[in-house]
Simulated scan of single mutants.
Amino acid sequence: MTREPLDDDVPVDDTLRYAGAARIRVSEGEGYVTSDEKLLAWVDPADEGRAVARTARDAWRVLRIQSEFVAGFDALENVAEAVTVFGSARVAPDGEEYATGVELGRLLAQAGYAVITGGGPGAMEAANKGAFEAGGQSIGLNIELPFEQHLNPYLTIATNFRYFFVRKTMFVKYAQAFVCLPGGIGTLDELFEALTLVQTGKVKRFPIVLIGRDYWGPLVGWLRDTLLAEGMISPGDVDLLTLVETPEEAVDVVRAAVAG
């Protein structure tokens, strides 16, 4: 199946910011405050005027949050089996880690899985590119940030979210597995949220695969040698993570777990 990447009809521009599905142009020198920041901002209860105004705004935000869930559910309603792939936005297109992401996306698509990522550049783009070029479903769930993060062009389904917690729900709801490529704080956040959901039984039969023994091995070792040794986690918790070296191994783990 031959397809051309979608061209973004909006040029790259530092004054453009996402707000849900819309782009908003910010005046030069104007600070940009995300919806998450507005929602989580502290207001002194002693400041009665601001406290009352916040209560009114929050009531309306509930409707916006609800609409964002509905939009996400509608966008992904036809997704069957899928794998969510996490990884750094900072991976260079000419690097080995990018090539690994492309191969992972290709193999997942060939195995019949849709590929879900955060929709941005780097490792996310790589996994989407592999799935897209293999003719599979390639899904990007972008997030509103203080700095611009354009959706990558290798997507068959793309949507933008204001709220991290809504986006995280979509990452889990439509996936049968998580695969983590090397990444930073955002990847760690998503990894440990997935691990918590599995460890607490909130999701069942959900493999979490880490690609790259040199990269992830020290983290797994710390979990085992420090947290487990100190009794902070249970003996089986470390086993909820599967450490592999290649995309082929990762896809084999996913297929075996889903076949169950």
Rank of each mutant, 00 (worst) to 15 (best):
E193N: 13
I139F: 15
P146N: 08
I208P: 01
F86Y: 12
D74K: 15
N152S: 11
S67Q: 15
A75M: 12
G184Q: 06
L151P: 00
E81R: 12
M124W: 11
N152K: 15
L155W: 06
Y174S: 06
I208D: 00
G201V: 02
G112D: 01
Y154F: 06
V85S: 05
T117A: 02
G186M: 13
Y163S: 02
G72S: 05
F164H: 11
L107H: 15
M124K: 04
T100H: 06
Q176K: 13
L155C: 01
V203G: 00
G72M: 09
Y154G: 07
V85C: 02
Q137G: 02
L155R: 08
T159R: 09
L107D: 11
K202R: 15
V91G: 06
P207A: 08
T159W: 04
M170R: 01
E190W: 10
L155H: 03
L155N: 00
G95H: 14
T196L: 03
G72A: 08
V166C: 14
M124S: 12
G135R: 05
N152Y: 15
F69H: 13
A82K: 11
P207S: 06
T100Q: 12
F69G: 11
L141Y: 07
T159V: 10
A194I: 05
G186Y: 09
F132I: 00
S138D: 14
G130S: 08
F69Y: 14
I157N: 01
N160T: 04
V79D: 00
G140E: 12
F147H: 10
R167A: 07
K173Q: 08
A111C: 04
I185R: 03
L191I: 06
A158D: 13
G130A: 09
G122M: 12
T200Y: 05
E103T: 11
R106S: 10
Y98P: 04
G136V: 14
A127N: 08
V91H: 04
F73I: 14
F171W: 10
D94R: 09
T84I: 12
F206P: 01
G136A: 08
A177G: 02
N142W: 03
G136C: 15
I157S: 03
G101L: 07
F147N: 06
G184L: 07
V91Q: 13
L188D: 12
L145R: 06
E68M: 14
E77V: 14
G183P: 01
A109F: 10
N78M: 07
P93M: 08
T159K: 10
L181G: 10
G120R: 02
E133A: 10
L181K: 15
G87I: 13
I157F: 05
V179E: 03
F165L: 13
R205F: 02
N128E: 04
E81L: 12
Y98Q: 04
F192Q: 00
Y174T: 11
L155Y: 11
D94K: 02
G135P: 06
R205M: 02
Q149D: 00
L195S: 01
N142V: 07
F165Q: 07
D189T: 14
G95F: 07
A109S: 10
E77A: 13
L141N: 03
M124P: 10
V179M: 03
K173R: 08
G118F: 01
G186V: 09
N128V: 13
L181S: 15
L104E: 08
R167P: 12
D189F: 13
